[in-house]
Structure formats: structure tokens, C-alpha cells
Amino acid sequence: MMRHGFISLAFCAALMGCAAAPAQERRPIAWDGLGQNPNQVPKRPSVTTRRVASQTPAESDPNHEREKVLGTLRPYSEAWWAVHDEIEAEKERRLGAKLVICRHCAQSPPSGDATGSIR
């Protein structure tokens, strides 16, 4: 009987803690990334805000032309591999420009044998 009383007392205390929270307090909601973010307040467009077209032209994709050429070449030929390697190198260059690694994360590999042998 004592155990049931303690469990019901703990349950009631937990419910009182939830009910005592102020109703105006807004806490972030866990968002799974699908749909609109419920934590973000929707913005209303103002009358004075105008959308201005971008003055800089969009960067052309150099791989677009290379992929066209790649389609005309015989698959896995020497020329095909050369163009394929150029496409991959351009993709790596773009990724490297976007990717930022801190100094502590990108440490050089240890010098010497690092095989993990016991000796």
C-alpha cells in the first residue's frame, strides 16, 4: 500500500510541474526537417520591400559542356577517362571551396609506421 501511495504521489508531482509552467513561454519544438520549421516565425512581406533581380549573372557550370562531350565518347576509352577525370576534379574543387575544416580537425598524419602493431 505504501508503494502505491508513493507512486501516485510522484505521478501527481510530475503533473503539477507540467501544469505550473507559464502558458506564454514558447519553447522550441523538435523539427524533423520536413515541411516548414515550426520554430520559425513566418515573415510578412512589407509594402516597402522590393525584390531586385540579381545583378551578377549566374555562374555557368563548366561540367555541363564536359558532360556533353563525355556522352559522345566511347565509354571507358582513354579520351573518356580524361574528360571524366576533369569532371571529377572540378567537382572536388567546388566541394573544397564549400567545405571548411578547422585547423584542429585537419591534422597531418603521424610520421612513421602507424599500423598499430604491438612491437
Rank of each mutant, 00 (worst) to 15 (best):
A114R: 10
I118P: 02
A79I: 05
P75K: 02
D61Q: 01
M2K: 13
F11H: 05
D85R: 10
G35A: 04
R3C: 07
E78L: 08
P38D: 03
Y76A: 04
V100T: 14
E65C: 07
C12K: 10
P75Q: 03
H64Y: 09
S46C: 05
A114L: 13
W80N: 01
N39M: 03
V41Y: 04
P28R: 02
G17C: 10
V83C: 02
S117Y: 10
L34N: 14
S60V: 15
P28T: 06
Q55R: 12
G116A: 06
G5N: 06
C18L: 12
K68P: 00
R44T: 13
T115A: 15
S8M: 15
S108C: 06
R74I: 08
C18K: 09
A58W: 12
C105M: 08
S117G: 13
A23P: 06
K68F: 11
E88C: 09
A89M: 08
G71K: 09
L34T: 06
P109Q: 04
P109I: 03
P57I: 03
W31G: 01
V47M: 11
R44S: 12
Q107A: 12
I29G: 07
E92D: 04
E65N: 10
V41E: 07
C12Y: 06
R74S: 09
A53Y: 12
Q36P: 06
L9K: 07
W80E: 00
G5S: 05
M16C: 15
V83R: 01
T56H: 10
R103H: 02
V69P: 00
P38S: 06
V100L: 05
Q55E: 09
W80V: 03
M16F: 15
E67A: 05
A10W: 03
R51Q: 11
A58Q: 12
E92F: 15
T48K: 14
Y76S: 05
K98C: 05
A23G: 12
T72H: 05
D32M: 05
A30S: 11
F6P: 00
E65L: 08
C102Y: 01
T72E: 07
I87H: 02
L15D: 01
L9R: 09
W81E: 08
F11G: 10
E67L: 13
C102I: 08
E59M: 15
L99G: 00
S77M: 08
A79D: 15
C105A: 09
S77K: 01
P57M: 09
A10E: 10
C18E: 03
E86D: 10
R3P: 02
K68A: 05
N39R: 04
P38R: 02
F11I: 12
S111E: 15
P22S: 08
Q55D: 10
A89G: 06
R74T: 11
P110H: 13
H84I: 01
M2H: 10
P38G: 06
A82W: 00
L95E: 02
L70F: 01
L73T: 01
R50N: 08
P45D: 10
D113R: 15
R66P: 00
R119M: 10
